[in-house]
């Protein structure tokens, strides 16, 4: 399972994005983080070739949220055979936008002195959940009413034995904010909001019944195509 950061935002363990056999000996593992509003791509480069690697550079294809490197890929010294280096690449969201399928798909090109290599990875959507995503209560109620029912999507989060307060605080660590909490007929109803870096708001209702490990998540958004990935992010944060 993943590890938390100081701010509480969920960080998945690094996985292999580019196996050495597909990149003439260069292996790339990585994960994504968001801490205090700064998004990073945390990379591990390993040289499994017989020759030294130099002249690294990285580039992203256009993507749904305009994610782009905010600095060049800095590998300070040549990478010798069997050597591994850890790099934290800062990202911003001012790059070119193109809607990807799935929405969180990122296509990456990495070059070194040997060749150019390409890979795709999926980023957890919460890296684009902003810190000021708590919607004012009156606006929440008006927006909830205003978004048509066709735009509501419902999901089950199974096997999540957390109570409402634990759920609330864990989600807040990843910029999903509880706006109101009510108890109706024994079940807790959390009303939550989050905002994406492109200004899209997502409103949520999370139902928690005592003794039932399955939660019901209802999402309302004017851009309902984000709902599936938002649901997956809830699952990832709550189950890890």
């Amino acid at each position: 399972s993943g590890v938390g950061t100081l701010s509480g935002s969920y960080v998945a363990p690094k996985t292999v994005w580019l196996p050495a056999m597909k990149a003439k000996g260069l292996e790339i593992s990585g994960t994504f983080t968001r801490q205090g509003g700064t998004i990073s791509m945390d990379l591990q480069l390993t040289n499994k070739a017989l020759q030294v690697m130099t002249d690294f550079a990285i580039q992203f294809n256009r993507n749904s949220f305009g994610l782009a490197p905010a600095a060049p890929l800095q590998v300070h010294a040549p990478l010798s055979p069997n050597q591994t280096v850890e790099i934290s690449l800062p990202l911003n969201t001012v790059g070119s936008v193109m809607k990807m399928e799935p929405l969180n798909n990122l296509q990456v090109a990495v070059k070194n002195n040997i060749d150019v290599f390409y890979f795709s990875t999926l980023y957890p959507l919460h890296i684009v959940f902003v810190e000021d995503g708590k919607m004012e209560r009156q606006l929440f109620l008006a927006t909830w009413k205003d978004i048509p029912n066709e735009n509501e999507a419902q999901f089950q989060i199974r096997d999540c034995p957390l109570n409402a307060d634990a759920v609330s605080s864990r989600l807040q660590g990843s910029n999903i904010f509880t706006v109101a909490k009510r108890n109706v007929e024994g079940q807790d109803m959390l009303y939550q909001s989050l905002k994406l870096t492109n200004g899209i708001w997502v409103l949520a209702e999370l139902r928690i019944q005592p003794g039932n490990p399955n939660l019901t998540l209802s999402l309302k958004c004017r851009a309902p195509e984000v709902s599936q990935q938002v649901f997956q992010t809830y699952e990832t944060i709550l189950k890890n």
Partner: peptide
């Protein structure tokens, strides 16, 4: 919290969602 009517509005929302 100030009693601005919003507490009541959230209760009504939660109620309506439980018993539509």
């Amino acid at each position: 919290e100030l009693d601005d009517g919003l507490d009541e509005a959230f209760s009504r929302l939660a109620q309506s969602r439980t018993n539509p």
